[in-house]
Nucleic acid binder design. Structure first.
Lengths: 189, 189
DNA sequence: GTCTATAGTCCGATAGAC
DNA sequence: GTCTATCGGACTATAGAC
């Protein structure tokens, strides 16, 4: 038997999401989150640097998955296709947590401060993808442009996926978004 | 004669930029900014909702310029070209303030919190561009994809422009970035 | 685990412009 | 009189220091 309940981090994350949904992000104090998780405010700040960060777990795992997928992609793969491979490799992570993703996104969409943080996380992932492409010998600015295009395609696909009543395949939505993006940037129209 | 020195807002903006450069964003308090501008902390918060916002004046002007340019673009112009027209219309705004833009960007680049805010402002501009395209009859998701592609091209161009020792033309850098972006998304390679 | 600085809010007061 | 810009003080919660 251990002295504390296990999984303090997970309990804080769950308590925070629940409270943000119940009464809104601004109306929730860190003290309340900690109380509901059976911990103290101080402990909250040991796990998360601030009140927003508690919603963005899984970021690190996603980053590693992207980078690893890019590292192991066939050498001949074009930059943009390499990025798509990485995005598709992460699709199961989302499919397995559809309801959680939906709830989380609803909270974020209701608060500009959380949207800021989400954008920063997305930019950090784009930077990691850019770096992984560079390591494969992709020159700048092609590396960062390919990463950014991938982010746009994913963002577009995710927005549709997360709130659809039916359950479309995220991979397919990504490919669709990318196709539309290609059509837009094609010169011959 | 009025009771107060004129342009309280401008004085606060200048004082804030100077202090953020001198000692860093985190090491600067709102009280110090207000003091240097000859005002009180309370007055600072009447003009700006928070400490970051003071760096992002001009945002509204830029938004109006983008929207107006899109509204008045020739009907036959393709979505992506309409966006480029808008971006180019705003180029003089930057060319006229190169040194200020440089200083501001250096402060932002040194602080994640400010980067968050910058990303949110950029997203807000993209949303305004998307909306302006929709009003011209551009369907979704083409409207938002075109806006996002424009944002990427501008971001890429701006990053090069703002720190070049020589003074390249921002318009040309935007067109170059867009060309590279088109090459990346082209299927035939 | 306690203590503290500071961001950010609220309500109200005041002084001049119109 | 009304409107607007500044200031004052009290207050809470975040976040970091010790």
């Amino acid at each position: 038997m251990s002295r504390w309940e296990p999984n303090a981090r997970g309990r804080l994350e769950q308590a925070a999401l629940d409270l943000y949904r119940e009464r809104g992000f601004d109306q929730t104090t860190v003290t309340e989150i900690a109380e509901r998780a059976g911990l103290t405010e101080r402990t909250f700040f040991r796990y998360f640097t601030d009140k927003r960060e508690v919603l963005f777990w899984g970021q690190e795992r996603l980053r590693e998955l992207y980078v690893r997928t890019i590292e192991t992609a066939p050498e001949s793969t074009a930059p943009i296709d390499t990025v798509v491979l990485a995005l598709e490799a992460a699709v199961p992570v989302f499919h397995e947590r559809r309801e959680l993703a939906r709830q989380r996104q609803a909270v974020i969409d209701a608060n500009p401060g959380l949207q800021e943080r989400e954008l920063l996380k997305r930019a950090a992932l784009a930077a990691a993808v850019t770096e992984a492409l560079r390591k494969r010998g992709v020159a700048d600015p092609v590396a960062s442009l390919a990463a950014d295009v991938g982010v746009i395609a994913f963002k577009t696909a995710f927005a549709r996926w997360v709130n659809s009543p039916d359950e479309p395949d995220l991979s397919q939505l990504i490919r669709e978004a990318l196709d539309q993006l290609k059509a837009i940037t094609r010169d011959d129209r």
